[in-house]
Every structure is written in structure tokens, then in C-alpha cells.
Design a protein around this nucleic acid. Structure first.
Lengths: 398, 398
DNA sequence: ACACGGATGGAAAGCGCTTTCTATCGGGCA
DNA sequence: TGCCCGATAGAAAGCGCTTTCCATCCGTGT
């Protein structure tokens, strides 16, 4: 029922081997023959069987991107950027172009007859392009898929196994991870076997794995966000404004991101000799920020500033404050983290710490492709930048 | 180098066939034998070769979710919900639980010795569960991957082809589509072949495909948002408040969502005998809303209300208005669409049209799994609900 | 006590593609 | 003119797993 390589071979009156070679373009095939094969592919509307190729070639062109929460733009932006770098044929940033290019792209190949042939042609084109003896390592066009772990360690492992099963070309893990030693070890082990099997591993916005066993090569290329310094700068900013009673709405416990940001915050306080204010842990969503703020104010009614786990949480913090009749930043200053697109639209606009999510994601994509050389020592630290806006100001009477 | 089924068989002193049967649990295997095999699997840390199984079984457990923009929560929420319904082992909504459950889940299997064994165990557990003669159609645990098309029709087709190659179990297309007839035909053709090959096709938040050829079964189960009615209600609300000069910041041209919302808007105006105000098309992002508003005010300085393509755009509209010194809703009312989580945090909170993204996504996931029966006639229309908040009010002097 | 059938396990034939290893065909060169 | 080589194409051996027959084995019914 489905068209196979053999069918194409028969129609083109060549051997299956030749068809394979034409399609993969890594072996000289006479122009005439190639032409004949392509015609047959077109006419039969042949689509290669992925599993079969992957099995025979022992590789696939899948790249997995793991995210903690796909509904959170923090991950969406990184994933989109990575995906753009991986799948857009080098165009780099298809995501950004997307809106504008929304129309038109479909007509680029007017030669096609039946609509579906356009697809086949596209495939051919790709092969053509790569057929000019592209080295194996160069990493041609790959297909990125994003896997939503929902923050569940079990699911993270499941996806990693799936990707391992699929013999993925690369895996990108984004965002902070759970700090449970058992889980960490399990992930490290899994990544080690993936790397061993030839899958490129990239960590984006996540701290590096432990050191590799001995003099062995690093398992993963790592792009780590400098959450600690970012958080520290943010708290220093608040301290400079005169705040001394600062509440902290932290992210979920046992997460690296949560810990690092908290550490930066505490470091700033310690350096200034200011006592730490109340801290409440919660989720990375707005209602968590709301609830935490209520709790915080209960514990310490005269707070003059609240630092949030991230921008989304900050929105909840603002809402809670407003509902209590407190003005921002008049009565209480609020700070976010990440500088997601909506941060500037909050009223007042959020003071926050910008993380170059887009750049980091794109770079992760290139690392996954092998287009970009891994950083020295395998780990690059990505700086976080303080962005001061209207939501922070001097405390009353300062 | 890698462990294969045969290795496991050898170690367990059974035939490969038996190992396969234990792993897939669709054939009676004596408890003792099974036990032996499982031990071997554990000890060797065996991970099945996905491509090989897919090839032999002619199916895979991949479910593809196509989204237009992964950085947009509109898609993220649907994708997350779908993914939760598909991959969470029936738990239904892993995404929501995620934050809370962030810790702990890793310890659930204290029997494991080496860290990596935990994974193997998890796999076994799954097999166990399904080994009790689960019918083929029931659709066990599948793996959802989301594919970001970035709104590019070419990429949409590419991903569909990829999924076809992988012999995906199901495909979910989310969000509106381009209205280009050629592209539409290409997609329809592709989906038809997918369906024909046994892949379940679900459209979520996208209008139905054209009618299937003759008396043939519908290719796709469709969950269509009633954007038209939603938009109509929204404009009616504005009209009821007394607005007569309403600007419209529309989404990209040639998109179904854009057209439907615009049609609803116009229908309301027509029904009320009110002349249509200026309309500007743009992207689905905040800066587009900002720019469009500047343009709108240039054309028609005395607008009293602006309707936006969606909430994100509305944020940009608000920013532009604020920058011009116009108050919301005092001088100009603003309305969004979708009711994304941040809509309530805008100041003033956005009046918008709520789309049950989460429910729709989850339902799409169940349809993809075959857990839920497709709607009558193949198409279910999902109602959109007007949500009135502070960003809309009576125009000055009304 | 003997034949029969249910319960298990093995053998082996692929699934569709990739990739050596060969075979063939012309030319260029000595 | 004859030989060796580069350029092409084909043959065939898998890749690792599923699954359709079959072959056993043992408990039962009569």
C-alpha cells in the first residue's frame, strides 16, 4: 500500500541502492540516473520510512528540546530560538520572521503540478543541497521537537529514554533542574549514555553536570545563566534605593534556579549587612505570587519591597499589593526576573533581570547541530542584566 | 556496543521472541520467565531500539503537536494540555500538577540499586500495566512532541512529512491556518495520507478541512473555536457601552483566525448599523499592537475604542495609548482576545474573550489517543465567552 | 492409560533502508 | 593496442525488533 524504496527503484529501473544514494546524496550518481530517480520519487509521491532509515543508518535527524513548562514563555522563547537555529536551514531566526512571512512562502516552487508534489520537491531540494559531499559532522537540516516535562523528573527521564530510543542526533535540556541527588545522577547517567551513543547533549540555562568520570570528554556543552549575580545585582539595586525590609517570593524548593537566585539575594544582603526578610516558596505562576504576598505581608506588614521568583510571579505580587491598597512603588517596590516580553507592560513596568533567552536558545541550537564550537571547558556562563523600570523606587521616607 | 534484544534474550536464556513478548506484553508469558527476562533487562540496562520496533511493528507511539508559535502561551497552553492528556498515563493534567509536584516524584521506587535502573523499572511498570491484554485500539502511553512551525507553511508541511516518516500515531494541528488555497490543499492532501496510513488527525482551534471526497470517513476530528461569535459579542459589548468609533488591530492577513474575528466584529457593527472604523493588520505581538495603534490614531484621532487581535496585541495597544497620554478606559476602551493568564494583570484588567484553551487542548489530546469519541459530524464548535473587565467602559460623554 | 487441547516458547521470515563489496564500462597512458 | 583506473551501478548482508506459524509439554477427560 505504501510506496517503498523498491517501488521507486523499479519505476526508475535502477537498484534500490541507487535510489538510496540519490536521496541521501553521499555517493556519486550520474546526472541522468539521478534525474530518472527523482522523477520516480515525484510521480510515486514517495516518502521514506523514517524508522527504516534510522535503523539502517543507526542515526536520525531528530533533535529533542526538553522544557519544564511549555506554557511558560520563558521556555517557549528558548525553545523557539533553538528550533529556529536548528530547523530553519540556517536562516537563523525563522520564528521572528514568522509573523511577517506568514504569507507567500508556499509558492516558492511553481514547477510542482499536484499540490503534494511540492513537498517531495522540498525534500529533493534539501538532498540536492547536501549532496555536495557534506561532511557527516556538519549536521544538515535537522528536525527539532520539544518535549514538555512539566517539571516532572520522571517525565524528564522518560523523554530522555524516548530520545535515546529514537537515536536522536542531539538533546537540549533547558531551564533549571531538580536538585534531588538521585534524579541528578539518573539524568547524568542517561546523558552519558546518550553522548556515548553519539547524541550531542546541550544544557541551556541549567547548571553543568558534575565532572565527567576521569579524563573523559565532557558529556554536555553547557550554557548556564548567571542567576546568582543577576539576583545579587537586583537586591543591591533595592538596597541602594534604601530598602531594608525586603520580602522574597521564591520558586519551588529543590530547584537550582530557585536556589541560585536566592543565594544571590542573600549575598547582597550579607554584603550590606542587612537582615534577610521573610521568604516564601511557591510555583512559577501568578497565583503563587499572589498567595505568597498575602503570606509575606501577614508575617511582616511593613515590607518595603518584594523580590519575585520571576516576572510571572511578580504580576501576582503586584495584584496582591494592589488589592491591599498598596501602591507600587510608593508603598512597596516589586521586582521580577527574566524580563519576559510582558514585563514592560506591567503597570508600573517591572524592574527585573534580563536573561538573553533568545540568544541562549539559538546558541544551544547551534551547539546541538555542531555548527558552533562548544565553549572553553564546556561551560559558558551567560550574564544576566539588571533592568530598572518603574516598579522599584525609594521606600517611603527614605 | 549497545545492548540489543538478543543480548537480553541470551542473558535470560530465552529466545528473542520471548523477550519481545515480555516487553510488549501482548502474549502470554509464564511469570517465572517474565521475571527472568525483566531481571536481564534491568541488569543490562536495556533500552529498545525505537526505529527497529517502529519498523517491525509498522507503528510508533509518537504524537506530533504542531503549533504556530511556541513562545506564545496561546499555543503553549493548548500544547501543554494536550501533552498532559497524552503522556501523563491518564493522570490527565500533569502540567497543572507539575509545579506542586516538582519534588518527590523521583523517589517513588526505592527498590532500585543503581540510579539508572530506576528508568528501566519505570518502563517495566508500564509494560506490566498494559500487559493485561490491552486492546490495540485503546492507545496506551504515547509520547507527545511539539513541533514549532513558526507560522511558516513550508515548515508545517515539513513537520507533517517528518511525522509521516516516523509513522506517528497521531497528529494535532493547533491554531488557525493560512488561507492560501494551495497550501490548504497541500495540507489536506498530506493529512489524508496520514489518516490513510492510520495516523489519527486532530485539528484544535482550527477550522475543519474541506469535506472528504465522497462518502469517505472524515480525515480529521476537529475542535473549532467560535471566534466569530466571540468577536461579535465583544463588539456588541462595546456598542452597548455607547462606542461608535471603534478601531481594529487585526492579526496577520490570510489567516482564518484573523478573518473570523474580523467577520464577527463586522457582523456586530452591521447589525447595529454602525460604520466600520479603521482596521490595521499586524503580527500577534505587542509591538505590532503598539505600531498599529499609532497608525490607527493617525487615521482617526477620535476613536473611543480599540479591539485587538489578541491579548498580547492589546498590551501593545495599551502602551501606545498610555504613551499618548490617553487613559484607559476613560479616553479609549481596549479589548483583547483569548484571555491569556496575564490579561487579568494588565492595568486596567483587559476585557477580552475567553477561549477554553486548556480544555480544548486536553480534549484534542484524548481525541489523538482515541480515548474520546470524535464529535458528531467530526466537528465540534467550541464556544468563546465574553469576559468584561476594566479596560472597557462608556466613552466620554456617553 | 491415551489422545487432545490449552499454555508456552522457539524458529524464522521479514519490515524498508543503508552500505560495503563487487562488477562493469570506457578511457587515458605507456 | 592493451592494461589499469576512475566513475557508476548492482548484489546482498544486515540494522534490531515483531509476529506468524510450529513444536512442546502437561493436565484432563473418558
Amino acid at each position: 500500500m505504501t510506496v517503498t524504496l523498491a517501488d521507486v527503484a523499479a519505476r526508475a529501473r535502477v537498484s534500490p541502492a541507487t535510489v538510496s544514494r540519490v536521496l541521501n546524496g553521499n555517493y556519486p550518481v550520474a546526472a541522468a540516473t539521478r534525474e530518472r530517480v527523482m522523477r520516480a520519487v515525484d510521480e510515486l509521491d514517495y516518502v521514506p520510512n523514517g524508522p527504516a532509515s534510522s535503523l539502517a543508518a543507526a542515526t536520525s535527524d531528530l533533535v529533542g528540546i526538553l522544557v519544564n513548562d511549555i506554557a511558560d514563555p520563558f521556555f517557549g522563547i528558548m525553545a523557539g530560538a533553538a528550533q529556529g537555529a536548528i530547523g530553519a536551514g540556517g536562516a537563523g531566526d525563522a520564528l521572528t520572521e514568522a509573523g511577517r512571512a506568514a504569507a507567500g512562502t508556499a509558492h516558492e516552487r511553481p514547477t510542482g503540478t499536484s499540490t503534494d508534489k511540492a513537498t517531495a520537491k522540498a525534500t529533493d531540494k534539501t538532498s540536492d543541497k547536501t549532496s555536495e559531499k557534506v561532511s557527516e559532522k556538519a549536521g544538515g537540516e535537522k528536525l527539532a521537537v520539544v518535549c514538555n516535562t512539566g517539571g516532572s523528573p520522571a517525565r524528564e527521564l522518560t523523554y530522555l529514554t524516548l530520545l535515546q530510543r529514537q537515536r536522536a542526533a542531539a538533546v537540549i535540556l533547558t531551564g533549571g533542574s531538580l536538585e534531588d541527588p538521585e534524579h541528578l545522577a539518573a539524568v547524568a547517567a542517561k546523558l552519558a549514555r546518550l553522548a556515548e551513543a553519539g547524541t550531542r547533549v546541550v544544557l541551556c540555562g541549567r547548571p553543568p553536570l558534575g565532572e565527567p568520570p576521569a579524563g573523559e570528554p565532557a558529556v554536555a556543552a553547557t550554557l548556564a545563566f548567571d542567576n546568582r549575580t543577576g539576583a545579587r545585582r537586583l537586591t543591591e539595586h533595592l538596597l541602594a534605593l534604601g530598602h531594608r525590609r525586603i520580602g522574597y517570593v521564591a520558586g519551588p524548593e529543590n530547584r537550582t534556579t530557585t536556589r541560585h537566585r536566592l543565594e544571590g539575594h542573600r549575598a547582597a544582603l550579607a554584603a550590606a549587612g542587612v537582615a534577610e526578610g521573610p521568604t516564601v516558596h511557591g510555583r512559577y505562576d501568578r497565583s503563587s505570587g499572589y498567595e505568597a504576598t498575602v503570606e509575606l505581608l501577614g508575617r511582616e506588614p511593613d515590607l518595603t519591597a518584594v523580590v519575585s521568583a520571576n516576572d510571572t510571579v511578580a504580576l501576582g505580587v503586584c495584584a496582591a499589593l494592589r488589592d491591599r491598597g498598596l501602591s507600587i512603588p510608593g508603598d512597596v517596590s516589586v521586582a521580577g526576573f527574566d524580563d519576559l516580553p510582558f514585563a514592560v507592560d506591567a503597570v508600573p513596568a517591572l524592574t527585573t533581570v534580563r536573561l538573553p533567552l533568545h540568544d541562549a536558545g539559538a546558541r544551544a541550537g547551534r551547539l546541538a547541530l555542531g555548527t558552533e564550537a562548544p565553549p572553553q571547558g564546556g561551560v559558558a556562563t551567560i550574564a544576566a542584566e539588571l533592568v530598572v523600570r518603574g516598579s522599584t523606587g525609594a521606600p517611603r521616607g527614605a
